[in-house]
Nucleic acid binder design. Structure first.
Length: 662
DNA sequence: GTAATATAGCTTTTT
DNA sequence: GCTATATTAC
């Protein structure tokens, strides 16, 4: 019970008011995770709740693990029984149970945005809709937005009446049908389908909502409409729903998250116990004061004043650099200086927070040069590399051969003489007989539709792999697939420099699978593939590694660092130009607030006067957010009057650009 | 019919 | 700066 004694009065309230709906508005650094864990521990220890009846939904898998780890210290082995995960992992679990129930043979495959895009293109070509008529990219976007709001293809058509939407609805419908025949789900489906299941099947509703006596949802400000509905259904029997969040930290509106979910929670759930955690335990007074002075500029807020008992600390620094390289230079020098001053300060105490992924480059270059250990989260990921995607396609096809998209991806990789013509032939077999691509290949081989060569050889070796894999360990399956298919040999034959690296990456993948296998001996190949698909950037952050972390502010949500560099504080970049155009400046301001409140001891804000994007270099004006910080919290430094001089120079430069050749 | 090479086109944030 | 498509070479 000692874990409750260390809580503040409001934290204690939030942790122990367990019955009925509860809304906890938890400011940045207010000890939210502690409250959540104490609450679950209180349920298990004091209220004798079976841990298997508790559902905790978090924003990242890492957050779920963290809760479980802390919980284990309080309640021991019972911690493992609590169901904790992201909306997507919880949804996947439910769908898998239903998948098994419905008696399908292959595994359930998760399609990421790349797969989604390919499938949309495929569907469009089948429907004879051309890219110039409607870009496949915007179709994917529309489909995802629709799923955030739980709008089916049929409903989509009735909600939107215009010509554009009619085409989207057609593609969306065909796309959805394809997913179902292939046993695949996209990210949206992981929420929508469980939601629909609960809404339409009273048995399923009784099963799940009966089981989850206590439901906790973290980062509630970033839930979308479908997630809100799913939550509501899951908690519908016992109505013990605890929503935790901070409207000031809502930064995923562009992805369909609805800040209204938290703002209107008390209206939707009558008799809600409302707790505000307003004491910040993380940052110095100067950092918090600076962050507060920015966020109060937002109109759409819940009344809340974050305060701290922490020392004043240093004032926030703002540094205007000549260009993005000088920006990186300043950061590098500062890191080195701080490390040399205090031996207790380590590289892992620093983070560079960017608005966009592309901003990381100059930092990477300079850190490499100066041998500062660093890690970039997000951006170009290991799993985005071509060779890894190909390798995973092999594994996905083996785990679920009906997944025609991944099957198609490996058919002629490495090149084995199956070209456009051969594929068209198999496609028509598939269409005529209503078969998946894999089945059509088998039929073609059995019917001797192809006398010899690629098609026959390929399907034979694929079948050999498939049947040989039973009883093998996961990493053995992976390595036999990559070697027997000739994929490894394909890269080995190429004597180029990058081929060597690709081979290394493939070996890396196999050993990663081996590690997974050791940690989870009972898991299947599909389990591994799904884990990888649902992994987020933040999940890749490991505080044990002593390195400087470079990441986007979005990925930094929920993390904290002693020293934070918020870089690229420039109009057009942060706030981003498109946000200004689209009128979502308040979300940018919240993003700025999230970035600033990651800092515990020192916060540095930086901007560049010149920044190159692509081939163009443009003059930048410092972000409005800098000017919104109350001067008391900023280190005194002459800020040149905003605009004027810079705009003047820009105007002159434009004039020259128009008259002078490059 | 298939494979290698040149060209255009896009870069906000992501489960 | 890097990936999907169009063109040409084999």
């Amino acid at each position: 019970m000692s874990f409750l004694k260390t809580l503040s009065k409001t934290q204690f309230d939030a942790a122990t008011h367990t019955e009925g709906p509860v809304l906890i508005v938890a400011g940045a650094g207010s000890g939210k995770t502690r409250v959540l864990t104490s609450r679950i521990a209180h349920l298990i220890i004091n209220k004798k709740v079976d841990p298997a009846n508790i559902l905790a939904v978090t924003f990242t898998n890492k957050a779920a693990h963290e809760i479980k780890e802390r919980l284990e210290k309080l309640v021991g082995a019972d911690a493992e029984k609590v169901i904790a995960g992201t909306f997507h992992t919880v949804g996947l679990r439910m769908l898998q149970e239903e998948h098994v129930r419905s008696g399908r043979k292959g595994a359930l495959t998760i399609y990421d945005e790349d797969d989604q895009h390919l499938l949309v293109k495929f569907v469009m070509s089948e429907l004879g809709i051309e890219e110039k008529e409607i870009p496949s990219k915007s179709v994917v976007w529309e489909i995802n937005l629709a799923k955030n709001d739980n709008i089916t293809p049929y409903k989509y058509l009735s909600v939107k009446g215009d010509a554009f939407s009619a085409i989207v609805a057609r593609i969306y419908g065909a796309y959805q049908k394809k997913l179902e025949t292939m046993g695949a789900v996209d990210f949206g489906d992981l929420i929508c389908r469980p939601m629909t299941l609960l809404a339409t099947d009273p048995d399923a509703l009784a099963r799940y909502s009966g089981r989850f006596r206590y439901v906790l949802v973290d980062e509630f400000q970033d839930t979308n409409k479908s997630q809100y509905e799913l939550t509501k259904l899951l908690a519908s029997t016992h109505k013990n729903l605890c929503a935790v969040g901070d409207p000031d930290q809502s930064i995923y509106g562009w992805r369909g998250a609805s800040i209204e979910n938290i703002l209107k929670f008390r209206e939707d759930y009558a008799g809600t116990k409302y707790v505000k955690l307003e004491q910040n335990y993380r940052s110095t007074r100067n950092i918090l004061g600076a962050a507060n002075s920015v966020i109060v500029k937002n109109e759409k807020r819940l009344e809340k004043t974050l305060w701290t008992g922490n020392p004043d600390g240093e004032k926030v620094s703002y540094e205007e650099c000549l260009n993005e390289y000088q920006e990186a230079r300043f950061v590098t020098t500062t890191i080195k200086k701080l490390i040399s001053i205090d031996p207790l300060i380590k590289f892992k105490d620093f983070t560079i927070l960017c608005r966009t992924n592309t901003q990381s480059r100059p930092f990477e270059e300079l850190f490499f040069e100066e041998s500062i250990p660093y890690k970039v989260l997000g951006g170009f990921k290991f799993f985005d590399r071509r060779e890894i995607k190909d390798a995973l396609a092999y594994l996905k096809a083996l785990a679920n051969p009906d997944d025609s998209l991944n099957f198609l991806r490996i058919v002629n990789v490495p090149p084995r003489g199956i070209g456009k013509a051969a594929l068209e032939k198999v496609h028509s077999i598939a269409n005529v007989h209503g078969l998946t691509l894999y089945e059509a290949f088998r039929k073609a081989a059995a019917d001797k539709a192809f006398s010899k060569g690629g098609v026959i050889d390929f399907i034979e070796s694929f079948e050999r792999l498939r049947h040989g894999s039973s009883g093998m360990g996961l990493h053995e399956i992976a390595s036999s697939a990559l070697y027997a298919s000739g994929y490894m040999a394909f890269w080995e034959a190429k004597k180029t420099e990058d081929a060597e690296e690709r081979l290394k990456n493939l070996e890396g993948l196999i050993s990663a699978i081996k590690n997974f296998e050791t940690s989870r001996p009972k898991a299947s190949l599909a389990d591994y593939l799904n884990l990888v698909a649902l992994m987020s950037d933040a999940d890749n952050y490991d505080e044990k590694n002593n390195r400087v972390t470079i990441m986007t502010i979005h990925s930094a949500k929920g993390l904290e660092f002693p020293f934070v560099f918020l870089v690229g504080m420039e109009e057009g970049l942060f706030p981003h130009k498109r946000s200004v155009d689209e009128g979502t400046i308040e979300e940018e301001r919240r993003l700025c607030y999230v970035g600033m409140t990651r800092a515990k001891r020192l916060l540095f804000l930086l901007s560049a006067k010149n920044r190159s994007a692509g081939k163009e270099t443009s003059l930048q004006i410092r972000s409005r957010f800098i000017d919104e910080i109350a001067p008391d919290f900023l280190k005194k430094k002459e800020l040149c009057p905003k605009g004027t001089a810079q705009e003047h120079i820009q105007a002159i430069k434009k004039l020259f650009a128009a008259t002078l050749p490059e």
